[in-house]
């Protein structure tokens, strides 16, 4: 039985780690880009960011003061048992958010959309978001937090089957150029692309593709994996680098996630995760021990529902 206090402790720790320690995969990605960058200004920006990551870790202070919109993705094993129930779980995540906001400190970003009042702790109505998923045959819980900026670099468009791959490239370019100017997207970034689903699913898939997959990870469908690399190259050929200065550093990696969609449409979303790609994951084992890492490992085969067919319970009972 996993205690509710353990869940709060894990969530509190990942809030800190995400804010302060740049994930290794992203750091390696940026190091690789510095060597290729020929634009003086863009190269200076990348080197300053490398200094910044180091300073953050040394001083234990956030690498970026814009906390973005801190949120959680939770994966619960079928066999995991926890003392506080699901509502207790969510309360623990809210408590961890409020405490970490004060202790790190993180900037309290969350305000009411109309009245602009806040609780100075990143907690409020429908905030932080908590998304749930499940995993068969395991007894652990994974909690991931991501602090991603909330203003620029994300867009959605309804494309149609006739638009094809050209349409995907066109919208990809449109978004990166629009938000890359002056560096509003805080590039070079991990770019997530959602394809298919309904509008909300499409946004969700693209967001998760950007935030929950590590640099170098490829989609299991080889043709989609190829498209990921092609879009990455395309983004880096725009002629724009960090802060929108002349250069080549736009896309550290591109991740695509797909969902079955309406037969007449091909909705697409684009999401840019920033130069301070803040994510951290905690795995709580059944005995309450906690292990930390920076790769969320969110997209398991079950997560993509690749392995699930549709036999009815009656048919399963009969064969048993």
């Amino acid at each position: 039985m996993i205690d509710n206090a353990t869940i709060e402790e894990a969530a509190y720790e990942i809030m800190k780690k995400a804010a302060i320690d740049i994930p290794e995969d992203y750091l390696e990605g940026i190091r690789g880009m510095v060597d290729l960058e020929t634009g003086d200004l863009s190269a200076f920006v990348l080197k300053a960011m490398l200094d910044n990551y180091e300073t953050a870790t040394e001083d234990r202070r956030p690498m970026c003061a814009d906390t973005g919109l801190p949120r959680y993705w939770v994966k619960v094993g079928d066999a995991a048992r926890f003392s506080g129930g699901f509502t207790g779980f969510e309360r623990a995540l809210r408590a961890a958010t409020a405490r970490a906001t004060h202790d790190v400190p993180l900037r309290p970003n969350r305000v009411h959309p109309l009245w602009r009042n806040e609780h100075n702790n990143n907690v409020g109505i429908n905030a932080p978001e908590v998304e749930w998923s499940f995993e068969p045959d395991v007894d652990w819980i994974d909690i991931t937090t991501v602090h991603k900026g909330g203003l620029f670099g994300t867009d959605y468009r309804m494309l149609f089957p006739g638009d094809g791959i050209d349409g995907i490239k066109r919208f990809f370019l449109d978004t990166l150029i629009a938000f890359g100017k002056r560096g509003l997207a805080c590039q070079p970034a991990i770019v997530g692309v959602g394809l298919g689903g309904s509008k909300d699913t499409c946004m969700q898939l693209g967001k998760q593709a950007a935030c929950l997959r590590a640099v170098g990870d490829r989609n299991p469908d080889p043709k989609i994996a190829e498209l990921e690399l092609e879009l990455k190259e395309l983004g880096n050929s725009i002629g724009m680098g960090a802060m929108g200065f002349v250069g080549s550093s736009m896309v550290v990696d591109c991740h695509i996630e797909v969902g079955f969609t309406h037969t007449g449409g091909m909705p697409m979303s684009v999401h840019t995760f920033c130069l301070s790609s803040r994510r951290a994951t905690a795995r709580i084992a059944a005995d309450g021990s906690i292990a930390y890492r920076s790769d969320p490992q969110w997209f398991t085969p079950y997560m993509r529902r690749e392995t699930i067919e549709w036999p009815s319970q009656r048919a399963l009972d009969k064969s048993a």
């Binding site: 300053a48 960011m49 910044n52 990551y53 956030p62 970026c64 814009d66 805080c186 802060m243």
Partner: peptide, 14 residues
């Protein structure tokens, strides 16, 4: 003057 990055939050914090 523009900040760099964006942003070098830890360097500026220091």
């Amino acid at each position: 003057l523009t900040t760099v990055g964006y942003g070098t939050g830890a360097l500026l914090g220091r």
